[in-house]
Computed example of a mutant assay.
Amino acid sequence: MITLENAHLALTVEPVFGARVTSLTDMATGRQWLVPGDPADGEAYLGEQARGWDECFPTVGVCTHAAWGGPMRDHGELWGRPWTVTRGADACTAVYVDPRFIFTRSLQLEGTSVIARYQVTNSSPDPLPYLWSQHALLATTPSDRIAVHGVADIWADGHPVDWPHHPIRDLSSIGATDEGFALKLYGQAQHAASAAILGPEGGIRFDWSGAEIPAFGLWLDYGGWPADAPVHQLALEPTTAPADDLATAEATGSARHLPPGDSDRWSVRITLLPPGPVPA
């Protein structure tokens, strides 16, 4: 385990399990923002595996893609596998090396924020199609609310959503564990996009540039998934494509194609917010 800490926040990274961030703690309130749990191996990303903060690349959902040799692993190539991690006083850099690509994520503490900087390099002789999604599963409370800014054209299940209105519920409110509700939404990120959890026990906000990361995913699970052992979790997901898997991203023209030898770079700032009034 590698721990970074300052006066405002602390986080822990587990190098041997996908460089997963297993904890993100607000030092002022003691609040733990990530869904806790022990590592759980497996090719299928189910409730037992759904913990902490992973990186999904080059897909999220299972699919088949010829450029990747056929069937693709659930939630991508990176989670649950050993990375090489080096650390400094207030930062650490994690690297995953594959014959086809090199994926790098650096985390740097800056006051109440952690800045995640990413780079993927194509080390294969062919163009590399991919999507990436940040996958931090957040532990929320019934008093929290979800706020989204700089995100347009939000949709779910193929239908437009007038945020936060939905035929079943107010999407900005947090559901109970026994609600039996699960929904994945996507939207298009504008020039400056953000998504946050706000509440009387503190908040957390994700900020990114739509020029670098053009889409946003929102995963809501209030005891609705998986069917055999439902869990309670929420994820604010800056992503390069509004799609659940690479094959769908290709079909909709939102997959990225990285030429041989080239690199793509992007970043996300995650900021812990003080307790405050809950937005109406």
Results as ranks from 00 to 15, higher is better:
A211D: 12
D170K: 06
I197P: 06
E55I: 04
I102Q: 08
A94P: 14
A91K: 04
I270Q: 14
D244F: 04
A229N: 02
H165C: 07
P82V: 09
A280W: 08
V85M: 01
Q32M: 09
V278D: 14
V13H: 08
N122V: 09
A251R: 11
F216V: 02
D207C: 06
I168T: 10
S194V: 05
Q188P: 13
E77T: 07
L220I: 01
P279S: 13
R169D: 05
R117H: 07
A195P: 12
A176S: 11
L131I: 04
L46N: 12
E43T: 13
G210R: 14
P214M: 13
P142A: 02
D126L: 07
P260S: 02
P36E: 05
Y118A: 09
D244K: 02
A28Q: 06
P39R: 14
A215L: 03
Y222I: 01
G224T: 04
L185R: 10
L185H: 15
P214N: 07
I102G: 00
P277D: 08
G224D: 02
S123V: 15
T22F: 14
A28S: 13
G18W: 00
G210E: 02
L236W: 14
P129F: 10
E43I: 09
A89P: 05
A243W: 00
G88P: 10
S143W: 00
P200W: 07
F103V: 02
W53E: 02
H65G: 11
E14A: 06
T140S: 12
T141G: 04
A40N: 14
P127R: 07
P226Q: 08
P214I: 13
G47Y: 01
F17Y: 11
I213T: 10
V148L: 12
L171W: 00
R145A: 03
V60L: 15
V95C: 03
E55R: 12
G18H: 01
A147R: 04
H257N: 11
H159Q: 15
Q32N: 11
P129Q: 11
P259H: 14
L198I: 14
L273H: 15
V95S: 13
D262W: 09
R87C: 15
F206Y: 06
W266E: 11
E5W: 02
P125W: 14
V231T: 03
P71Y: 10
L138Y: 09
A243N: 03
W79E: 01
A241E: 01
H191N: 15
S263Q: 07
Q32L: 11
P200N: 05
G276L: 05
H159Y: 07
E250G: 09
M72T: 04
S123I: 14
G42C: 11
G180A: 01
Q119V: 00
I174E: 03
G30R: 11
Q49G: 04
P238W: 07
F206T: 11
R269Y: 12
A147K: 07
P274G: 15
R73F: 05
A255G: 12
T239Q: 12
E212M: 10
S123E: 12
P125M: 11
G276F: 04
L258H: 12
A94H: 12
A91Y: 09
A196G: 09
W83Y: 10
D98H: 14
V13I: 15
R81E: 10
G175F: 00
F206D: 06
V114S: 03
V16W: 01
W68R: 11
Q119I: 00
E5K: 12
L137G: 02
P277A: 11
R20H: 00
P167S: 08
G37T: 13
R100C: 00
W155K: 05
A67N: 05
